[in-house]
Design a protein around this nucleic acid. Structure first.
Lengths: 165, 165
DNA sequence: TATTGTTATACTCTATAACTATA
DNA sequence: TATAGTTATAGAGTATAACAATA
């Protein structure tokens, strides 16, 4: 993910070949991969992820971080374990995400009054503001990637994916 | 990913709560996530990935490794850079994958006669055998996850995903 | 006993940037 | 100059396993 803006530490010519990320290369035999639903998903993801980074890399926002912020914003006071479950990841992973969002100043761990062990997760004011802007950028990103499909096809795709997962 | 078969290094009771990975938890407000095509894809992937690991974790085979083996098997003699492009990853990433597959004894770097810089990638005999078995397991995995859809829906899903990516 | 958050540990994936041997 | 493979570096993501405090 790290997309440093670079610096030239020495006097050599930099080797900055852009490595193009095509999900499907002509002339290559993908064999069984072309038949697998799972790989079609993977292919779609490559393209989507690329566009996501191009749109949001400078925000230090990644897909899991966006998910976490959105969930916390819509379920104020939720516990870390609940966040982990909602995201489909392990608790230790949720700790990581929350740590990074806390470091960015977007999320705060509050105290839960009902359970001394638990935290009450919430967005900071800056976090709420950032989430607004980021959500806007994500919406545009999502429109961009789904532009290849008609409205009807988009709905059908969503329906099929929901049925799948 | 590492799913070690565990061992009990000390005399404490192990804390082996299974962390259930549900992509969508009732009672949680997913907000804008429910509207995004990208997140629907992510959700489907959570479930698919889980099943993939359950089916193939013991083989030390991961999705990228399977893709690489399949591509090398179907395009014998391909160069590392071609593999990277076909997979949609950076060359350095392809080096990693090939290293791990070489360590497993499944892939070998041969010499290219046309270009002294390049390698000619190929499956070892064991690699070819392993790929057969793994492919069978993957086919079953793919059938399992797509079982929720009718044949017609599967084709439609593939068509929509191809159009997307 | 079970759960909450946390830490330790490990591994995979991915990227950028540069280097080296060749082309 | 450009390409093929490689290495160095970095950071994210994810998992398992244990632990201390609390329920």
């Amino acid at each position: 993910m790290s997309r440093k803006l670079s610096s030239r530490p020495n006097n050599r010519r930099p080797d900055q070949r852009g490595e193009p990320f095509n999900a499907q290369v002509p002339g290559v035999d993908y064999g069984v991969l072309d038949e697998l639903v799972g790989y079609c998903l993977r292919r779609a993801q490559i393209r989507i992820y690329q566009d996501f980074l191009d749109a949001l890399g400078s925000w230090s926002i990644t897909p899991p971080r966006f998910s976490a912020m959105t969930l916390i914003g819509n379920n104020a006071g939720m516990k870390l374990t609940e966040l982990a479950r909602a995201m489909g990841i392990a608790r230790s992973g949720a700790v990581e995400v929350v740590n990074s969002l806390e470091k960015l100043g977007y999320v705060a761990r509050g105290a839960s009054q009902s359970d001394k062990r638990a935290h009450s997760l919430g967005l900071t004011p800056e976090g709420a503001l950032a989430l607004q802007a980021v959500t806007q950028a994500i919406r545009e990103h999502d429109l961009r990637i789904s532009a290849a499909l008609s409205q009807k096809e988009q709905e059908e795709l969503r329906r099929l994916l929901d049925k799948l997962g």
